[in-house]
Amino acid sequence: MDDRKTNWPLTLFLLIVSAPILIMYVWLFIDSVSEINIESIWPEKFTLRNWRFLTEEIPGHGSVWTATLNTTIFATSVVAIVVVLSSTAGYALSRLKFPFRAPFLGIVLLLHSFPSVTLIISIFLMLRMIGLYDTLVGVILVKAALELPFGIWIMKGFYDTVPWEIEMAGLQDGASRFQVWYKLVLPQIMPGVAALAIFSFMAGWSEFVLPLILAPSSDTRLLSVYLAGLIIDDYLSDFGLFKAVGLFYVVPVMIFYLFTQDKLMNIYGGGTKG
């Protein structure tokens, strides 16, 4: 077991079941830059026509750049809110004594495994009532709030691993509780903060259902909604275009993932929720 030989039937089996994924993503690239021939899946001719959405609006679908900007704002805001609130709340839950700590922790834990998508209807109605419907602010707040229990829980897990002695020593040395947190404890859990930030960014960049329901109009729509809009448009049935937009949308997150995957894997350290 310590030096494994290739087991060809096993490798072949995995290759076959993995084939759809490999094929789909290879052709995502191929078809985005080639003219599509309905008879064959092999590319005939190189073209950049599928990328026209970068310079002109597809009729009825608004500008891709507005959507890109919105997506960027959306994802970064969600990261900022989630990271700041989770790292403070996680610390409080892990280390501070305050009234109703246990019940609050229970609620966070409950919400952490609670399927937030079931709340979408009442959130939609509430946003309509308070006038945040179809605004980026509204959907950012909702997404951040839904990510929070997970973030708080993860951060609490990371804080739990920091030895108490560090804090006790800090207090002995005359630092305030805040200084202890900021200068001694926070640096210890930077891997956790980084993992959470990366995770939230990817979740934000890919989010579809919330913006679809809560911010559907062309000024507020995100790339996911933009692309989904193209796909369900009956007048377009152009996989070349879809794939070009798809590639445009997926490449940043893929690159981001490649550069951050080691850090991101920290988040699975707790082994509770992926």
Binding site: M24, M202, W205, S206, I231
Partner: peptide
Amino acid sequence: RISPSVIYVMLWKWFTFDSGF
């Protein structure tokens, strides 16, 4: 898992489409 759902599903639609793979 890391690709946005919209793209992943779009690729399956292409894969199973009458002119797809």
